[in-house]
Amino acid sequence: MTFDFLDQIPKFVVLGVGVLAFLLVVLGVLYVGNIVPHRPKSLTAGLVFLIPTLVLVSIGLVVPAIRTTVLSLGDSRGEGFVGLDNYVWIFTDPQILGVVRNSALWVVLVPLVATAVGLVYAVIIDQTRLEKLAKTLVFLPMAISFVGAAIIWKFVYDYKQIGDQIGLLNQFMVWLFGEGATQHWLTMPFWNNLFLIAVMVWIQAGFATVVLSAAIKGVPSEIIEAARLDGVNAWQMFWKVTVPSIRPAIIVVLVTMSIASLKLFDIVRTMTGGRNGTSVLAYEMYAQSFPGQQTGRGAALAVVLFLLVIPIVVYQVRNLRQRKEVR
């Protein structure tokens, strides 16, 4: 079979229809936006702008969230009612408790380490000659899919008990400490979690670097100048001037990464399949729900995942209130 571009034309027709529909919706909203009351306070006006989002989000996310909550009270087929049994299972089964612990580890370590690395790197490369290149190098992993990244790192962690190492990390161990120092990184109890977390940090640090570097450039030069005149050293400059000035940006980065870490699933799936105590909530939820056919348990894990984000939501609400007071 040779590839025939003509066969593909229907797809572009569909694409055209899609783009047309897109324009119609957006122009429609804007048109109605012209008619509704011009007052800044208007429920009608607000709803008009929100309608596409609300419809899509309700169908795509709200309904599934409700359904999941209902299913979490049911059995493995999603039929009989079992009360809170699935939740009891989560918090009593030692294996699942390990999963919860792992998720906690991810959600704490990934944002902290990735942001720290990103921040330090952004500060160091700021205003240097090779800044653009340096930023690009670290950001590149962001463009790689989770699955691609997992393959890259599985290769780094590869372990051979006999013969030449083909994994870089073990080769380093050989170079530094000799043949006996090699390890099978992905099966080491507990530590293997950290090796997986390293992959996520590797992916996310670029995001932190680019965002924080932009924020650093946004720090008003008057402040820096004033601090300079006060004779602060580089260390103080970093902690007393830079960090407080870009605090909002740091928070956005932390929040985004926390949520991403909670939802992480592909890296664990590709690298270890959750074996050897490396499973995390999002992966366990998937494994229980689909291949494992434990609908109720999978749903309960999803609800726990959802509950874990409440602290972040509360924080966001407070933030919003504060900002309003400032304004």
């Binding site: 099966t187 074996r275 494994a287 229980q288 291949p291 494992g292 056919q293 434990q294």
Partner: peptide, 19 residues
């Protein structure tokens, strides 16, 4: 066997058994 045994705990425990 049911999926959560046949393709989960059976695999997992046998891996640990080897270890």
């Amino acid at each position: 066997m049911p999926g959560h045994v046949g393709s989960d705990s059976f695999f997992d425990e046998m891996t640990q058994w080897i270890n």
